[in-house]
Structures are given as structure tokens and as C-alpha cells.
């Protein structure tokens, strides 16, 4: 990390984040005070056992679920002060999500899946340089197929393209290779690595696999709803 990056304010800053799910009368604490700083342009891997709160953290960072308490700032904006509408707008413009599976809408072609994300954000034309991203992802020839006709790896690469089409500040990938074989998995990870190198895209990736985490700049671990030592 260069000293200039270190001096700039982090794109994600989390302090004392708690999330408690209420299931009937029972409180389920999913996050018990998470602190995290992510500098702009970092490729961060998040590892941790099942149930440690990784997905919950991502959902809150992405504005899909409200936190119970704590401070979160995303790209300079205080997430706790945001209204529902502002969080929706943040999902449209600032965040790109990639999930483990069933990521694409099955009835639309790859191209239309990407176009839908744009249209939801109120954008009509793909951003400049998006052709290169498609090239990088190796899906330019596959855009007119529906998800069913694509391999798992191809689907995941289309999902990455869709997540990037609105030029988000942050790409949140929740186990993006969890459903892929080694070859496809490596291809996707190479792409994320390459994307981060070339465009400085900030990427947060959840994984169970240490080999996958090795593609990232840095790895953090979670345990029982907190950050833990590796």
C-alpha cells in the first residue's frame, strides 16, 4: 500500500457494528461489534467459519439490511443517517453485489441482465471502457444466451459484469467461487485480481477457501460476529 492511499480516508469505515436479528422472542446476535477499515482500491478477502456473520456484514455494507448499532461510512456517506430511498440509490450506484449462486434472472439474456441493472439505476448506455471489462471477463461472445445456456463460471462472470456496469465504488462478492470447480474458480479469481490491478476497483470478497483468499491484497477473519486474528 502506498503512503498516499494510507493517508486518504478509507472507502469503508466500520466501528462497533452490531446486528441483532429478532426471531420471535429470541435475539440472535449476528454481529457483535465489528471494526473495519478498507482503503480505496483494496482487494480484501474475508474468511471465517459458517455463521460468523460474514454475509450479514456484507448485507449491511450494501444497504440491504439496517444495522442495529454502530458507525458505518461508505464512500464518505454515513449509512446510519440514510433513508430507505437513499439506501436504494446507494445499491443502484455505489454497490455491486455478486452472490454465490442463482445470481442472474433466468428469463433474461446475459446482455439484458446487465441492461436491467443499468435501467434500474436510470442509466441507458454502458460506461466507457465497459467493452474492455467484458473482454476481460471473456463473455462478449456469450451475451445473447440465457443463464441456463451458460456454464457456472460464465454465469458468475456475467454477474460480475452486471455488478460493475454502474461503476460502483465497491464490489461485494459473497462466496463468488463457492459453486465453481477449480478451473472456473481460478478464472473468476484471476479476473477479480486483474480488475483490481487495472482499474483500482475496491473489492470485498467472502470466501471459505484460503487459496482463494490468497488472490486478495489482504485477508481479514471473522469469528462469532467479530473480527478475529487470522
Amino acid at each position: 500500500m502506498s503512503s498516499a492511499q494510507a493517508a486518504a480516508p478509507p472507502i469503508i469505515r466500520v466501528r462497533g457494528l452490531q446486528k441483532i436479528y429478532r426471531l420471535g422472542d429470541v435475539d440472535v446476535p449476528a454481529l457483535r461489534g465489528v471494526d473495519l477499515d478498507v482503503p480505496r482500491g483494496e482487494f480484501l478477502a474475508v474468511i471465517g467459519p459458517s455463521g460468523s456473520g460474514k454475509s450479514t456484514l456484507f448485507h449491511i455494507l450494501g444497504g440491504l439490511a439496517p444495522p442495529t448499532s454502530g458507525e458505518i461510512s461508505i464512500d464518505g456517506a454515513d449509512l446510519r443517517r440514510m433513508s430507505e430511498n437513499e439506501r436504494t440509490a446507494m445499491r443502484q450506484k455505489k454497490i455491486g453485489f455478486v452472490f454465490q449462486k442463482y445470481n442472474l434472472l433466468p428469463t433474461l439474456t446475459a446482455r439484458d441482465n446487465i441492461a436491467l441493472a443499468q435501467s434500474l439505476a436510470g442509466v441507458t448506455a454502458p460506461p466507457p471502457g465497459f467493452e474492455q471489462i467484458l473482454e476481460l471477463l471473456g463473455i462478449r461472445q456469450r451475451l445473447d444466451h440465457r443463464p441456463r445456456a451458460l456454464s457456472g463460471g460464465e454465469q458468475q462472470r456475467v454477474a460480475i459484469a452486471r455488478a460493475l456496469v454502474n461503476q460502483p465504488a465497491i464490489l461485494l462478492a459473497d462466496e463468488p467461487t463457492g459453486n465453481l470447480d477449480t478451473a472456473n474458480s481460478n478464472a473468476v479469481l484471476e479476473i477479480l485480481r486483474d480488475l483490481n490491478n487495472r482499474t483500482g476497483q475496491t473489492i470485498l470478497m467472502i470466501t471459505h477457501n484460503p487459496e482463494a483468499a490468497a488472490f486478495a491484497d489482504r485477508t481479514v477473519a471473522m469469528r462469532d460476529g467479530r473480527m478475529a486474528a487470522l
Binding site: G62, L64, N85, T88, A89, R91, Q92, K93, F97, F99, Y102, N103, L104, L105, P106, L116, A117, L120, A121, R162
Partner: peptide, 16 residues
Amino acid sequence: TREIGILKALGAKPLT
């Protein structure tokens, strides 16, 4: 159900 979740993650409003 899941597609609706994806739409919401992409920033679809409830009204949409």
C-alpha cells in the same frame, strides 16, 4: 422469491 431478492440487491424499489 430469489429473483426478487436479486432485483432488490440491484437497487429495485418496492414500487418497482
